[in-house]
Design a binder for these strands. Structure first.
Length: 561
RNA sequence: AGCCCCGUAGUGCAGCGGUUAGCACAAGAGACUCUGGAUCUCUAGACACCAGUUCGAAUCUGGUCGGGGCUGCCA
């Protein structure tokens, strides 16, 4: 499906329009998505992916996938693979433009030599502590390093030594010579290279000096002839540095543009915090369906197009915002409503015996696969004397606005017959079985006498029912902004009931034809998908999202008053 | 505190000197319905504040207030 819809342009596209008008980049539009492979991508990254690849599509330009792998201490091959998978799954194609910052290490090194020769960079022997100390702070300027005025030759020799591995980690750094009293801290002689005797996922042990983000990123963009380098707001203060390096080198100079990152209610959106949840076993892994990771959402049952639509609709701006989780849910429901085949399944079964239905008889009834899309056809569902219905669909003493099944009440079984409850079987005060009568004249769900029922409920024939496991997910946290509580550990806000496993669910036999990751709707319950752990002997479904439920909403509203 | 960025319904965005300030979600009411789903209709709800420029300001300017970012050899 397409996500085309009329959305007005954002400020970034306005800038691009201007640049096109003034022919700033000879009509080119070239963006990039530059993740660091130090974790799994999340919905916030999806926003950036949709922005960067989306702009390239809109303007018939190009978008590169580039791994910003300048820190071997944190980066791993597993992450590279997952990121590639995620971008592809979201529906974007980098074609032959898969790049790594580490591919440019040699060229960056040569650029650094160029800066040294121009007396714009120097090797500093100070310790990390000393460098931090002499940087000054928000209100007081920093002070110059006493190694700041080394000769070009001395710097060249030392830098070569750094590269050759003659120094230990932290013993020396290469710094840009800018201004230790600059009001922007980032401009106080920022570090360009640090020594790290670590094995890099891509370059192995070839290098023991690694470039810092500020030095590397602009070069990567410049080398790839990026036109618009789009990043998040926290890099705003780094833009002067980005510009300074490229100007000092006199190389091709893209434009950095910053936008606000996505925040979602009831979750956390930081790789560091997500890593904690995974490492401490608080969730089942990076693809735990409760996580806002792309892999987690995929396993939860979100479709790529629903995520793309969401990213498009939230827009892009320059102020920090917090998007309601419900909005994401709205986007999946909207998509799945049109695309997911319907089935019947009972989560918490309540046995129903039809007293007047012949023993041993079975019928095949017609059911529509998707009322929103007739082209999806129909299927047969078995019907017999003993059925299961949802426990929630029966109340012994119902309030008057409950219009499902109750003693003496008649309801419709979807695609089947009208039934009326005649008797309630209880055990230890708990309802364990219902006796009902069915009206043979209402086959297919219509009464020839035109009488109406208040509600239609779902059911499964007991003999043919397949037992399945269903995993119900709820929000991972109990408060809107768990990471925003100052001085408190976000983990104390974890929702203890974010996962509920039901192991005795009864589903109609047709679901056995579904494959891993297939998405579906269990009528009246919500959208689900087949978990990868499913086997023919043991079906496992994940609930993606519930259907909107005005009955539940009503109940909650009345509870409050 | 210094520097930078930003303030439009509950939420997310649009509005680019003249609009009854628009859209979507959420909320409320109703219609329809073999999913209390979907769909349709309607309702309520915002320019942070104060000056100035202008015939005219949500839009331009200055100030006030409020929010965010920055003091890693992370990105």
């Amino acid at each position: 499906m397409q996500d085309a819809e009329t959305v007005s342009k954002d400020f970034i596209r306005d800038i691009i329009d201007d640049d096109l008008r003034t022919n700033k980049y000879q009509g080119r539009v070239h963006t990039r998505f530059p993740p660091e492979p130090n974790g799994y991508l999340h919905i916030g990254h999806a926003k950036s992916i949709c922005l960067n690849f989306g702009i390239a599509q809109d303007y018939k330009g190009l978008c590169n996938l580039r791994f910003d792998d300048t820190n071997p201490a944190k980066e791993e091959e597993e992450y590279v693979q997952s990121i590639k998978d995620n971008v592809k799954w979201l529906g974007f194609d980098w074609e032959d433009r898969l790049f790594f910052a580490s591919d440019y290490f040699q060229q960056m090194y040569e650029y650094a030599v160029q800066l040294i020769k121009a007396e714009k960079a120097y090797v500093d022997d100070q310790t990390a502590d000393k460098i931090a100390e002499t940087r000054g702070n928000l209100t007081t300027p920093g002070t110059n390093s006493l190694y700041r005025d080394r000769t070009v030759q001395e710097n060249l020799d030392l830098f070569e030594g750094m590269k050759a591995g003659v120094f230990a980690d932290g013993q020396k750094v290469l710094r840009a010579k800018i201004d230790m009293s600059h009001p922007n801290l980032n401009m106080r002689d920022p570090i360009m290279y640090r020594i790290l005797h670590a094995t890099h996922h891509n370059t192995g042990d070839e290098w023991c000096i690694y470039p810092m983000y500020d030095w590397a990123h602009g070069l990567e963009d410049s080398i790839e002839r990026i036109t618009h380098s789009i990043c998040t707001l926290e890099f705003e203060n780094h833009r002067p540095l980005y510009d300074w390096f490229l100007d000092a080198l006199g190389v091709y100079h893209p434009q950095q543009i910053e936008f606000a990152r996505l925040n979602l209610t009831f979750t956390v959106m930081s790789k560091r915090l997500l890593l904690q949840l995974v490492d401490e076993g608080l969730v089942a892994g990076w693809d735990d369906p409760r996580l806002p990771t792309i892999s987690g959402m995929r396993r939860r049952g979100y479709s790529p197009s629903s995520i793309r639509t969401f990213c498009k609709r939230i827009g892009v701006a320059k102020f920090n915002s917090m998007v309601d989780f419900e909005f994401l849910e709205y986007c999946v429901r909207e998509d799945l409503n049109k695309t997911a085949p319907r089935f019947m399944g009972v989560l918490r079964p309540l046995k129903v015996v039809l007293e007047n239905y012949p023993e041993g008889r079975t019928e095949e009834l017609d059911a529509v696969n998707n009322p929103e899309d007739p082209s999806m056809g129909s299927r047969k569902i078995p019907f017999s004397k003993v059925l299961y219905i949802e426990q929630d669909d029966f109340m012994e003493n119902p309030p008057k606005d409950f219009y499902r099944l109750a003693p003496g009440r008649e309801v419709r079984l979807r695609y089947a017959y009208f039934i009326k409850c005649t008797n309630v079987v209880k055990k230890d005060g708990k309802v364990v079985e219902l006796h009902c009568t069915y009206d043979p004249a209402t086959k297919g769900g219509y009464a020839p006498d035109g009488r109406k029922v208040k509600s239609t409920i779902h059911w499964v024939s007991a003999d043919q029912a397949v037992t399945a496991e269903v995993r119900l997910y709820d929000r991972l946290f109990t408060i809107k902004d768990p990471a925003g509580e100052k001085g408190r550990d976000f983990k104390q806000f974890l929702n203890p009931t974010s996962l509920e496993v039901l192991s005795d669910c009864k589903v109609e036999p047709a679901v056995q034809a579904l494959k891993s990751s297939d998405r579906l709707q269990f009528e009246r319950l919500g959208y689900f998908c087949v978990d990868p752990e499913t086997t023919p002997q043991h079906l496992v479904f994940n609930r993606t999202v519930e259907l909107r439920d005005s009955w539940v909403k009503k109940q909650k509203a009345s509870q409050k008053t």
